[in-house]
Design a protein around this nucleic acid. Structure first.
Length: 469
RNA sequence: CGGGCUGUGGCUUAGUUUGGUCUAGAGCGCUCGGCUGGGGGCCGAGAGAUCGGGAGUUCAAAUCUCCCCAGCCCGACCA
């Protein structure tokens, strides 16, 4: 059994590895309806950590949480031409309810720009009502043809922010702020996932937006995953839903709106950004269980000591859990590794005889002999180091797998196992179509210095292209 | 929607080509008991399958025929 790995190795079949991890770490199951997903307690606990970290950051920008209905009149979608065109193919529509056919079909929300726009129009009268900064945590439904757990499910959980502003500049600045202070900060510090920040080319833009800013991460197979996006909607939705306000001069003006979202897809990103052949690797900040204290045997003295340690770790503000030693040691250790718990404390007879325990890092597998009364301190240090190292390793990996190229053909070659970086001018137009035939798309555009452009028509932009999920 | 393929205990699967030896076998998982325990440990005893559904051919169908259903892969599609 020892030579047979628990999971399909990443190098042999990455998608299979992903499915194995999701199943064996007890993250999620397929739902009975095609494309739906059951999020299991461990997967949901990770999502709750993400929610809490994002929610705090969102609130720090001044946005307030609200809740809008799941059902949207079909006619709402049609009010914004690009929006309806973009979403129509993936809508779930309710035509019957209460035993009768409905006069107007009801759409299950794929996103909430439209309903929220309707109410923004109602609530905004004056420039004094602006900016209006809303966020909601909700489920949405998009009937995708290629579902994959967490990455693309028919129904998924997310937060969607929707704001209205008095000026273009204010809206653009807020969308940018969300991108940096909420999304990128969260992705880097909590998920330990380095992201390329940039704008989407028009072909990849949100339906109805005038500009879309994205955070793109590299997965361990070299493919890209869009982790979060924030959109400048200009006055498109304001026009469609009559979001007018009176300015200081008493004249009616159309508001400028934004929307921005991050979803349970990030859980999939977390798995594929850090996971290895032994399973999930959860960064400490995102981990529901940061430290598991495992007894080597099922004996009273060991359990006693282990229980005391859990108490001390708890008191030190760490999320710790006790494994009481039922079943074989190897089995239990393997299970915790599959779940990616960042730090393991092993309590065995040999340890106790020497008045110490063994700490093991999940990410590096390094072992440390630590005196009993130093466990909390050392645990805190090792968790911090793990959090840092995971980010650094992911960044190094991305850089090592990003090639600078000077033609579309070279880009197609380079994106077999990573990202390619080339001048946007080489890709814009014909080049994008050629790339697409090789399943390669433009993930984002940056300025030469790596900053986020205001528009794709700025000169000398750099395009990052890759295969993606 | 076009092309290809697959449905056998919870999971992975053997058996289907050539109908009978299948009263459907195994591994993992699960239950019970015991020994264990520093990396999926060992022994023993169990539970669990109308072979995707229906119809047909036949003395006899997991196996052949037809219809239906579900799923997978490729394509198209995918803010």
């Amino acid at each position: 059994m020892a030579d047979e790995s628990v999971l399909t190795p990443q190098s042999r079949d990455f998608p299979r590895w992903y499915q194995d991890v999701v199943a064996k770490a007890e993250m999620a199951d397929n739902g009975p309806v095609r494309g739906t997903m059951v999020i299991r307690p461990y997967g949901y606990a990770i999502w709750e950590r993400m929610q809490a970290a994002l929610d705090a950051r969102i609130k720090a920008t001044g946005a307030k949480n609200a809740y809008f209905p799941l059902f949207i009149p079909e006619s709402y979608l049609a009010r914004e031409a690009e929006h309806v065109e973009g979403f129509s193919p993936e809508l779930a529509v309710v035509t019957h309810a209460g035993g009768e056919q409905l006069a107007e079909p009801i759409v299950v929300r794929p996103t909430s720009e439209t309903v929220i726009g309707e109410f923004m129009a109602k609530w905004i009268q004056s420039y004094r009502d602006l900016p209006l900064l809303l966020n909601q945590w909700a489920n949405v439904v998009r009937w995708e043809l290629r579902p994959r757990l967490f990455l693309r499910s028919s129904e998924f959980l997310w937060q969607e922010g929707h704001t209205a502003h008095a000026s273009y500049a204010d809206a653009a600045a807020y969308a940018r702020r969300i991108h940096l202070e909420v999304y990128n900060d969260f992705l880097a510090k909590v998920l330990a996932v380095p992201c390329l920040l940039g704008i989407k080319p028009p072909s990849e833009r949100f339906a109805g937006a005038i500009n879309t800013t994205t955070a793109e991460a590299m997965m361990k197979d070299g493919k890209a995953l869009q982790m979060a996006t924030s959109h400048e909607l200009g006055q498109n939705f304001a026009r469609a839903f009559d979001i007018f306000f009176q300015n200081e001069a008493g004249q009616a003006e159309l508001a400028h709106t934004t929307s921005w979202g991050a979803s349970t897809r990030m859980v999939g990103g977390l798995i594929m950004a850090h996971g290895d052949d032994r399973g999930l690797v959860v960064p400490p900040e995102a981990a529901p269980v940061q430290v598991v204290v495992v007894t080597v045997r099922d004996s009273d003295d060991l359990i006693q000591t282990a229980g005391d340690l859990v108490g001390r770790l708890d008191a030190a503000g760490l999320r710790a859990e006790l494994d009481r030693g039922r079943g074989s040691f190897g089995r239990r250790v393997t299970d915790w590794e599959i779940k990616g718990v960042p730090l393991r404390v092993e309590v065995g007879p040999r340890d106790l005889a020497e008045g110490r325990v063994t700490l093991v890092r999940r990410d590096t597998a390094e072992k440390f002999a630590v005196a009993l009364d130093e466990v909390s301190t050392r645990a805190r240090e090792l968790l911090a180091a793990s959090q840092r190292d995971l980010f650094d390793a992911a960044l190094a990996r991305r850089e090592a797998n990003t090639a600078d190229v000077t033609s579309v053909d070279e880009a197609l070659e380079a994106t077999q196992n990573g990202f390619a970086r080339l001048a946007w001018d080489l890709v814009n137009g014909e080049g994008e179509a050629t790339l697409k035939k090789g399943a390669v798309t433009v993930r984002c555009l940056q300025r030469a210095d790596g900053t986020i452009p205001d528009s794709e028509s700025e000169p000398n932009l750099v395009a990052f292209v890759a295969k993606s999920y």
